[in-house]
């Protein structure tokens, strides 16, 4: 059993016991249909919103606040979205956040050297994707576990970012037009939110409505069976890693434009939040598999909770506390629901 299997199992608490019990759980999920299992996140989100809107009508319950929340989470949401493809295919990409940070530095440094923004952006996307090619090669050809391969890559990218910046903050040298890409607002919400919407839509279509999505889940579900249906498993796994890395490049460009400066440490803090969102997302909408809508719900559920607490005057560490508790709680709830259904099935 690979690490990814274990984690996927942990995240969704599906039993791998052949048939019986797992079967019961799955049957129940289906039978419940629109029940608590699939949409617990949405309900919880609504409760959180109503709770804080009543408590803090002046600050939380304003249109402005919802616009702020929407814009605030765009980067985290996009990093999480980038992770969906590899997680679906049963590989880990721990390098995604470091890659974002690396690409922030690359796109800024290139422009400081006088490169025009469009070319710098293209080069950065290419650099991001190249990281994925290396990840794919190491995982598929050298057969290094993806967890280890991308952890190593993460460290390499951190070193690369340090090298590019010389450990210093990079400021200036980018055009206002470039900054506008990340800082302008439309209807009161900053641009990255709209990029995130477009990215979500594209990924949603790919994952749910194209053969590629089928391939990803086939490989992630049972690699041996996928191989024996003639799927080019290696290509799918490498492709997922290349896509996540290319998306990391894109997020890096957007983040660079919205920060307006670059330093080597801006990327990595996104990793935990993004993975939490994807895992929490696997308990929603399409239980048991990484999915776009579930991930977005997870990102915004967590952000709404944190925002409410911040506006109530809670200190900043509540952020991490809330994220951690919510992740464990939600996944545990999903597991409990599945277990209870199993028990009632067995009794029946």
């Amino acid at each position: 059993m690979t690490i990814s299997d274990k984690t996927a199992e942990a995240a969704t608490s599906r039993s791998t016991a052949p048939n019986g019990s797992a079967a019961g759980a799955r049957a129940s999920r289906r039978r419940i249909g629109f029940g608590f299992n699939k949409f617990s996140g949405l309900y919880l989100w609504a409760i959180v919103i109503v709770f804080f809107a009543i408590r803090l009508p002046q600050t939380f319950g304003t249109t402005q606040n919802f616009k702020i929340m929407a814009g605030d989470q765009a980067i985290t949401a996009m990093v999480a979205l980038a992770l969906i493809l590899p997680v679906a295919a049963g590989v880990f990409d721990l390098s995604v956040a470091a890659n974002v940070g690396f690409c922030v530095c690359v796109v800024t440094r290139l422009q400081m050297h006088g490169m025009s923004a469009p070319i710098a952006i293209l080069m950065t996307l290419f650099a991001g994707a190249l990281v994925g090619v290396v990840n794919g090669f190491v995982v598929v050809r050298l057969e290094v576990d993806s967890f280890i391969a991308t952890l190593g890559m993460s460290s390499i990218l951190a070193a690369g970012a340090y090298w590019i910046t010389g450990g210093q903050q990079l400021v200036g040298g980018v055009s206002q037009k470039f900054l506008n890409l990340g800082q302008n607002t439309l209807w009161g919400i900053s641009y990255p939110f709209y990029y995130m919407l477009v990215l979500s839509l594209v990924l949603y279509i790919i994952v749910e409505h194209t053969p590629v999505g089928r391939y990803l889940f086939a490989v992630g579900g049972n690699m041996q069976a996928a191989r024996l249906t003639g799927l080019r498993v290696d290509r799918v796994r490498a492709g997922a890693l290349i896509c996540s890395s290319a998306l990391a490049g894109l997020v890096g460009v957007i983040l660079a434009a919205s920060l307006g400066s670059a330093s080597q440490d801006v990327g990595p803090p996104y990793l935990l939040a993004a993975f939490s969102a994807v895992f929490l997302g696997t308990t929603q909408i399409r239980p048991g598999r990484a999915n776009v809508v579930g991930t977005l719900i997870a990102v915004y559920l967590l952000a709404t909770g944190v925002k409410g607490l911040q506006l109530s005057g809670a200190p900043v560490w509540v952020n991490g506390l809330f994220n951690g508790v919510a992740l464990i709680f939600a996944v545990a709830l999903a597991a409990r629901g599945a277990r209870r259904q199993r028990a009632s099935n067995a009794a029946a």
């Binding site: 799955r26 053969p211 049972n222 024996l228 249906t229």
Partner: peptide, 28 residues
Amino acid sequence: ANALFLDATVATNVTAVGTERFTRFGLV
């Protein structure tokens, strides 16, 4: 071990091969 996607539905298991025949503009 070798043929089933145990997490998935019957339909997904059937369509594990030959999805391409049911696509239009790249969408299933």
